[in-house]
Design a protein around this nucleic acid. Structure first.
Lengths: 221, 221
DNA sequence: AAACAATTTTTTGTATACAAGAATAAAATT
DNA sequence: AATTTTATTCTTGTATACAAAAAATTGTTT
């Protein structure tokens, strides 16, 4: 058993990441303390850490809110995400082990099996898993951690992106090519495919914009 | 005036980044509280945030230390740093404004003026400034923030790298080519040059390894 | 003298109390 | 009635007090 703050932090984090606590929601220390059955101290500790990781925004003397992100921020974050994922893919193509190749193929097969269905949430899960395996195969633990953290920060907003009609099918095809490239050891191709896969640009970006709630159309800190 | 914790945090951060507080140093809450003339509460607040940003490591019930990094971690972080800087350069080549071009050229001239000297510290400063301008010219505030944060985390260890004989001269030549590429708008070249510039590999890496104190040759968390 | 056990001392983590600033409500002025 | 001013309430930030765990010290046994 660890400290109370260390138990509270991941719960809050999960609530933010899943969207149970929406961006902009006030995080009242007293209310949270009551909810978790502790004093304000460990709550403040958790909020402080979450603020450093970017999921929570603390405005001095004005309390904490779930971090609200402007459209500009979101685009910027996706741009970095695409690059880091591309780096993962490039390194994975060079460093992946035989055992990891097997896992990666299996994950793709599982993912692909849902590609013709409308089981968005299940596909989303398996999709995460596939990408996780690529992160791991990069054999750069720091990179892995960074990408995961950025993905966590994006995830409250990411669900907006996935529901585009026909997206799952083409996404799965792209995965197939990417997995091939990594297993063949073609790092340049793996990098390029990932960039194209994650990037939000062209028509796809227009679609993305059109699904945005107005929340994102105003600037923020 | 902001809160005490918000004043203390950057001071501690600076001490860590500059190496005044060396990796592995215990950060005793009571001692720090006395030193800053406050209670333990704001100290703990600052330490918690620093732990989330990676500069401090908090081991449950065992106190905080300045984050110690293994050689493996260091290599991993440099690998990511190289990639993020390359992204900055690529974006900068596409998005830099005329005013920023002027600034960038001036920064390079200032940097170059010291390249034939042995004023390592001054060169280091101007070198940082030049890279800062490239980050800014990427016009991606999130990326800029990420790169800066990673650089902060590397800086306690980075001084090891710069003192290689002849390094300043060749570094400055590389800068010249990079600045040219950005100003010409050649994003692919800017990206490639940056990758080569920052990367630690080949002979240069061997040199680097040979300068490492034993601290880095053991694993850590 | 070395190793183990028990006790004391430190140090961390949480709760509570209080002070100061921000938000809100009420009163007063135009 | 609307707006400004004042008073009140609420919330944050810091200090202090206390409980529990880890580290250090002492004492004991072999």
């Amino acid at each position: 058993m660890t400290s109370r703050a260390n138990e509270i932090l991941p719960v809050l984090e999960q609530d933010i990441v899943t969207g149970a606590l929406k961006p902009g929601t006030r995080l009242d220390e007293t209310i949270l303390a009551a909810k978790f059955g502790v004093s304000r101290t460990p709550i403040r500790e958790a909020l402080n850490r979450l603020s450093a990781s970017g999921l929570v925004e603390i405005r001095p003397r004005r309390g904490a809110i779930v971090a609200a992100i402007s459209l500009q921020d979101l685009m910027n974050m996706f741009e970095v995400m695409a690059d880091l994922e591309a780096l993962c893919a490039r390194l994975a193509a060079r460093r992946i082990t035989p055992a990891e190749k097997t896992e990666l193929l299996a994950a793709h097969v599982a993912c692909d099996a849902l590609s013709a269905t409308d089981r968005f949430d299940d596909y989303y899960e398996l999709n995460l898993n596939l990408h996780d395996l690529i992160y791991k195969a990069s054999h750069n633990a720091f990179l892995e951690k960074q990408v995961r953290e950025l993905r966590r920060r994006l995830s409250p907003h990411r669900r907006l992106q996935v529901r585009i009609p026909g997206r799952i099918g083409s996404s799965s095809e792209e995965h197939g090519a990417l997995v091939d490239a990594i297993i063949k050891g073609d790092s340049a191709l793996a990098e390029k495919l990932t960039r194209d896969h994650v990037a939000i640009q062209g028509e796809r970006f227009t679609d993305f914009l059109s699904t945005l709630p107005s929340q994102y159309l105003q600037a923020s800190a």
